[in-house]
Amino acid sequence: MLQVNNIVKQYASHRALDDVSLTIEKGKIFGLLGPNGAGKTSLIRIITQITAPDQGEVLFNGKRLNSDHIAQIGYLPEERGLYKKMEIGEQVLYLAKLKGLSTQEATKRIKHWFEKLEMGSWWNKKVEDLSKGMQQKVQFVATVLHEPELIILDEPFSGFDPVNAAIIKDEILELNKKGATFIFSTHHMESVEELCDNIALINRSKKILDGAVDDIKEQYRNNTFWVEYHGVHDLKQVAPAFEVLETDIYKGNSRIKVQLQPDQSANQLLSAILPYVSVSRLEEVIPTMNDIFIEKVKQKN
């Protein structure tokens, strides 16, 4: 759906994006990750045509990005963008009409979403009377109301309690199931693992990692295991060939974290320790997206 080719964006002496290229497939949830100031927001502003790149181009469904594509994109910014004194229903109706919906169709869709997200009594409330999380719900509805092909969410769970965050996650997955493509920018790596098919990590204006979430996690596996056991207290003595990274007590049982060499296997580890202990659990340590994020950013820095 979206092809970002060699984008460069310069602000005075600061280069926000330096030769960044991305491919976002139709029907996928794409995580756009990076620390503060990495360049994520600059890229989003280019895709939404708030600003233009200094070099490079963006293709939307194979065509160079232009003003006709604006109606096919929904954007939920991290900053609140609602008129504080305006009534909620009137405001969402106004935003929907800007996206090309008729008053009748917009009203119908607003009522549907308000009921669905338990906002039925909010129509005549003013934005200033709502909590941060409630305002975010309103902005989410305004973002998806016109049923855009591409939905860009910048920190969409900011201000939500766990219950409402779960509700919005379910709505994102349902919209995706119906064919919507998402760009999802966040610092919450747990949400990335739950929702995203593919990710790109930007740091200091450059793309430093991209690919399918499962493939990246597979790539960063490092042959590390937790072993929970009863028996000999110090397994280092009975299995000196294996590198023990950590030892602790877990629910009353002894536990060690062991990193094996490339030529070592979990079976070899078990063969070495089973004459001395009773193993109750062996679990591979799969790196989380949070672990990978921190490692890659530290390497780059």
Results as ranks from 00 to 15, higher is better:
Asp248Trp: 09
Pro262Ser: 14
Asp161Gln: 05
Leu33Trp: 07
Asp210Trp: 13
Asn301Leu: 13
Tyr11Arg: 01
Val127Leu: 13
Tyr276Ile: 02
Asn124Arg: 15
Phe140Met: 08
Glu147Gly: 09
His230Met: 10
Lys63Leu: 07
Asp263Glu: 15
Lys28His: 11
Met86Trp: 09
Gln259Val: 02
Val227His: 02
Ile29Lys: 10
Ile7Thr: 00
Gly34Trp: 09
Asp215Lys: 03
Ala241Gly: 05
Glu90Val: 00
Phe114Glu: 06
Leu17Gln: 02
Leu201Ala: 12
Gly27Ser: 04
Glu90Cys: 04
Glu228Gly: 06
Ser280Cys: 09
Ala38Trp: 12
Ile208Asn: 03
Phe157Asp: 09
Val127Glu: 15
Gln261Gly: 11
Ile50Thr: 06
Glu128Asp: 15
Pro162Trp: 07
Leu33Ser: 13
Tyr229Ala: 09
Gly231Asn: 03
Lys132Arg: 15
Arg255Ser: 14
Lys108Val: 00
Gly34Cys: 03
Lys99Met: 05
Leu82Asn: 08
Arg255Pro: 01
Thr224Ser: 13
Gln104Met: 11
Gly37Val: 01
Arg45Ala: 08
Asp19Leu: 01
Gly120Lys: 15
Lys84Glu: 15
Val232Cys: 08
Gln259Trp: 04
Asp263Leu: 11
Asp215Cys: 00
Lys132Leu: 12
Ile168Asp: 09
Glu283Pro: 01
Arg45Trp: 07
Ser21Val: 00
Ser158Arg: 03
Asp54Arg: 01
Lys251His: 13
Asn301Lys: 13
Lys40Ile: 00
Lys63Cys: 14
Val8Arg: 07
Val58Thr: 02
